[in-house]
Write a protein that binds this DNA or RNA. Structure first.
Lengths: 129, 129
DNA sequence: ATTGAGCTTCACGTTAACGTCAATGTTAAA
DNA sequence: TTTAACATTGACGTTAACGTGAAGCTCAAT
């Protein structure tokens, strides 16, 4: 299993090492350590960091992201636990869906605001003839 | 023309008056004042606040939002100015579009992560037979 | 005319999400 | 074996986006 150092990941994700340490501080990551205390990151942490940065980019704060990461981290064994996990996950997915829809509304509004400028430009260019 | 007080708007948008004053502080709003210095909000500020809160909700910070508000505030008279405004606006719209696409990717990823749980649940329920 | 709710401007406090030293330990290469 | 580039843990600093008084003005209602 390939292991990564903290600066390798920081480089890959284009953030500082402080950022990654901070994510461990608040419980978003729990990388293994080697004998001298160095963090050893694996594919698992890479996946988690991907989720974190995608989430951040789109308005979720680290507390919300933490919930998602923990959701897909622990394996929910047992019927009831599994069903609750699925319910929670579906809730999060529909939150994302909601954001998509509102962004589409926003895009539409911006486009109709732009229409005013397009009309104005056309008018100006017709006048030039 | 209907005028609104600061607390009427704060109530309507479900924020504090401090928030609205802060938006004026950083130049997002420039409401008129009456003789005694009270802020007088009109339909224009309501529209701007709608844009602000929608933007905030979806990951734009107040500096980015300020650019958008100013874009749709001043009327860009003159051919060159108008063309630059349109170009800028189109840029902003494609930024929004980009966010929509990435959110869709995120949704897809979450759904495929959920699939694992669905499969597991099915397995559990088959075992019960 | 007074009271209470609402407005004003300072101006300092707070929280999230890191930035930025400092002091020290580790490791790979020359 | 020493040097340079890495790592570690404190711990204080910073910025955005407000929160929270304080001190005083205004307005509507009693």
């Amino acid at each position: 299993m390939t292991r990564y150092s903290i600066s390798e990941l920081a480089n890959y994700f284009n953030v500082t090492t402080r950022t990654i340490r901070y994510y461990e501080e608040i419980g978003l990551l729990k990388p293994e350590r080697n004998d001298s205390g160095y963090r050893q990151f694996t594919k698992k942490e890479v996946t988690q960091l991907q989720l974190i940065f995608r989430g951040k980019k789109y308005g979720f704060n680290l507390d919300e992201i933490k919930e998602m990461v923990l959701l897909f981290d622990e394996d929910p064994t047992g019927h009831e636990q599994l069903k609750r996990t699925i319910e929670y996950g579906e809730g999060k997915i529909s939150e994302v869906d909601q954001r998509i829809h509102e962004l589409q509304v926003m895009k539409g509004e911006m486009e109709s605001l732009m229409q005013v400028f397009y009309d104005e430009l056309n008018q100006l260019e017709e006048d030039e003839l």
